[in-house]
Simulated assay, not measured.
Amino acid sequence: MHIARKLVATLALTAVAQLASAQAFPDRSITLVVPNPPGGLVDTSARLLSEPLTRVIGQTVIVDNKPGASGNIAYQFVANAKPDGYTLLISYSGYHVGNPALMDKLAWDPVKDFSPIALLTISTNVIAVHPSVPVNNLKEFIAYAKANPGKLNYASQGNGSVSHIGTEMFKQSTGIEMVHVPYKGSGPAIQDVLAGQVQVFISTPPSLMQHVQSGKLKGLAVTGKSRHPGMPNVPTTAEAGLPSFQLESWVGLFAPAGTPAPVVAKLTDSVKKSLALPEVKERADAAGVELRYLTPAATDALVKKELPYWNKAIKSANITLD
Rank of each mutant, 00 (worst) to 15 (best):
I73W: 08
N80K: 07
N72S: 13
V63D: 05
N80L: 12
K66C: 10
A79Y: 04
T60G: 09
Y86G: 05
Q76T: 15
G71E: 00
K82C: 09
N80C: 10
G85H: 01
D64M: 09
A81I: 04
D84S: 14
T87M: 01
S70F: 12
G71F: 03
G85C: 10
A81D: 03
P83E: 09
V61C: 06
V78R: 05
A79S: 11
S70Q: 08
I62P: 06
P83N: 06
N72D: 14
G71W: 02
A81Q: 04
P83W: 03
Y86I: 09
P83D: 00
F77Y: 15
Q59W: 13
A74Y: 01
D84E: 15
L88A: 00
N72K: 05
F77D: 09
P67S: 07
T87H: 03
V61P: 08
Y86T: 07
V61G: 08
Q59C: 13
S70Y: 09
N65R: 11
G68E: 10
G68F: 04
F77R: 11
V78N: 01
A79L: 05
V78C: 06
V63S: 04
Q59G: 07
V78D: 02
A79E: 01
Y86D: 00
N72L: 15
A81S: 14
G71K: 02
S70N: 09
V61S: 00
P83L: 09
Y86F: 08
D64A: 04
P83G: 13
A79P: 01
V63K: 00
P83R: 02
A81W: 02
N80D: 14
A74F: 05
D84C: 10
G85I: 01
P83H: 13
G71D: 09
Y86A: 07
T87R: 03
S70E: 04
D64C: 04
V61E: 02
G71M: 07
P83Y: 06
F77M: 15
G85L: 07
V61R: 00
N72T: 13
I73F: 08
N80W: 07
V78W: 01
Y75C: 00
G71Q: 02
T87A: 07
Q76E: 14
F77E: 10
I73G: 02
A69Y: 02
K82M: 14
L88I: 11
N65G: 10
N72M: 10
N65M: 12
V61I: 12
V61Y: 01
N65H: 13
I73A: 07
N65S: 15
Y86S: 04
